[in-house]
């Protein structure tokens, strides 16, 4: 399940993923960030993500690419222990701002 919310004043797009974050979210996740063209920053809320696999990591990279690559402002928020673990193994803290 993917929900998204765009704050017009901060121009921040928040994408919230619930449950398993895997390939089944691919279409919805991509639609969430391509549907808003004027966003300048992105928050991905992972509070209710129970599991995340490598294709989810791929989707995050896709978002980062879309948001400007090395200049992208993408925050990964509220990830739980297991999810943090996976992000750390992949060394994604070097690409994203990760807040527990």
């Amino acid at each position: 399940m993917v929900e998204s919310f765009f704050d017009k004043t901060t121009r921040c797009l928040t994408i919230k993923v619930n449950g398993r974050f895997d390939y089944s979210c691919h279409k919805m996740f991509k639609e969430a960030f391509t549907s808003v063209t004027i966003a300048t920053s992105y928050d991905v809320n992972l509070a209710d993500v129970s599991y995340l696999d490598s294709s989810a990591l791929g989707m995050l990279l896709l978002l980062r690419d879309h948001a400007g690559g090395d200049k992208a402002q993408v925050r990964l928020l509220y990830a739980n222990g297991a999810v943090i673990d996976i992000l750390k193994i992949a060394n994604f803290h070097r690409l994203f701002d990760i807040t527990e």
């Binding site: 990279l61 090395d70 750390k88 060394n91 070097r94 690409l95």
Partner: peptide, 14 residues
């Protein structure tokens, strides 16, 4: 422990 990003993520200069 994994201390690097996976292969194919970073551009060659980074």
């Amino acid at each position: 422990t994994s201390k690097n990003l996976p292969l194919g993520v970073l551009s060659p200069d980074a």
